[in-house]
Nucleic acid binder design. Structure first.
Lengths: 269, 269
DNA sequence: CGCTCGCTTGATCTCCTTCAAGGACAGTGG
DNA sequence: CCACTGTCCTTGAAGGAGATCAAGCGAGCG
């Protein structure tokens, strides 16, 4: 068990400075850095990925970038804002499959899956980068190490989905909520977005409810109970973790499934 | 909407004959055939995969082949029997992530993930084939088309996990149960294991309960309700679908997420 | 024959849903 | 500057799907 400070103290390099970085990095660089957080990426491969050209696009809040049935020709990268992957059930019920923070690559699976069976949309105004499949295919053919990390990234996604399955199937509401907070916090930290035990998490309670498979009402009540413990606070789009060990304890959170490289982060065994 | 017969009539070739095939096919052939069910596999690539050498191993019921924390050196193929992927929660609660029928390849993700974050075990006495990672790596390096299908296979796994997430988060018990039956039935059919609207599904009610995140008691009651509709029967390890359209309707089952090649099977749009 | 494992049934409890409404706040337009 | 409106959060009360606890039953098996 490690305290909150060690988590925050682990400098993730470029993102240590407040607000720095984002605008300055190309789309390719963002992807390269993301891949490097899952394993060793040789300098030459890093450079090759970083050199990829990407189109930047701004999405208004609550608009989709990929839709059920689409056959995408580009891979999406989050540059700022927040994306979510979701489906709408037969009775109009929305299930969110995952959230995607800046620097993450939500749609790598479109490289080898023929069509989307879900939607990818912006929660808040979001800037994304688009890299053509063709460019990535070339990397895959020519750069085994980069290929390995791209592939691994899609596998980690799958591991996260499985964890969401466990969470929503088994855990009572307060544990599930704490668990979601843990995951988003660690992922934010891995992306260099945690600062002073806080990170941005610009969701509404309804989004969280649809992620956990709960109602907004019950999510609200559960949230209040969590707040009263003083362990964590989530207000106006800001997640603040006051007591990381205790939050982990509540959620029984084990970050292994995220397969992050940095052992500092979350006490990988 | 299509009737049950068209589903069953679609000959999947080698498995049309009762009980035939299994013993005769090499481990490599099984993998090659499985990959081919997700896309075009050129003859040369098919041959290369089919030529892979695999060790055959028999697992007693309820024994694990891969364990949380393991770093596998081989890929697992199901030759006969039934595997399940699962984790045990902090309070000893088991969550099953997926079941694996004969001809399926449960553990392809171990190729590029460093260690297991879950368990893979036999439900009933199961024969598996083991192909070394090294051999697969060679295929991946030398055979782009085979690589594409291997990768795709892992992506389809992820899509299935997401569907399980939706099922367990949103659907009431009777729909969830029907949905599981639908999925296993279609997958069995894709593997050539459906015969006369029946397939083997050698689970106990407790396994199903742990897959759906329900209790065994409630699974039992839900099952009885489903039985009384006359749409489907599941007894002594045999799943029989009497009215496929109606079962699909109950579950609101849309097989798109399985990304199967054969359009006959399940009415892909 | 007795034992274990899996299935079944009944009664009670509780977590979460549903329905309904009030309140805080920001944005907009007069 | 203030009413107006929409979005999101909050609160209350009642109902239900599924959990929990407990026990009986049937069949395969050593």
């Amino acid at each position: 068990m490690r305290d909150a400070n060690s988590l925050l103290a682990s400098g993730q390099g470029w993102a240590g400075r407040p607000g720095a970085g984002q605008g300055m990095n190309s789309v390719g660089e963002t992807l390269a850095r993301h891949l490097a957080s899952f394993g060793e990426l040789p300098a030459a491969d890093f450079a090759a990925v970083a050199a990829l050209k990407g189109e930047v696009r701004d999405l208004p809040r609550q608009t989709d970038i990929l839709r059920n049935g689409d056959q995408p020709t580009h891979v999406v990268l989050v540059l700022s804002g927040l994306l979510h992957r979701y489906t709408i059930g037969p009775e109009g019920k929305r299930q969110i499959h995952s959230f995607y923070l800046p620097n993450e690559a939500p749609s790598l699976e479109t490289l080898y899956i023929d069509y989307m069976d879900n939607n990818l949309g912006a929660v808040v105004p979001t800037r994304v980068g688009l890299i053509s499949h063709d460019q990535i295919y070339r990397i895959i053919d020519e750069r085994p190490e980069a290929r390995k990390l791209l592939w691994r990234q899609t596998l980690v996604q799958a591991a996260i989905f499985r964890q969401w399955l466990v969470r929503n199937s088994n855990l009572p509401a307060h544990m599930a909520l704490a668990h979601l907070f843990c995951e988003m916090f660690v992922r934010a930290d891995a992306a260099g977005l945690v600062e002073d035990r806080r990170c941005s998490l610009p969701l509404t309670q309804e989004y969280v409810a649809d992620a956990l498979g709960l109602t907004a009402v019950h999510t609200n009540r559960t949230l209040q109970a969590l707040r009263e413990t003083g362990v964590v606070e989530w207000r106006s789009g800001q997640l603040t973790v006051y007591d990381w060990p205790k939050l982990r304890e509540i959620a029984r959170f084990d970050p292994n499934y995220l397969h992050l490289r940095s052992t500092e982060l979350a006490g990988r065994r």
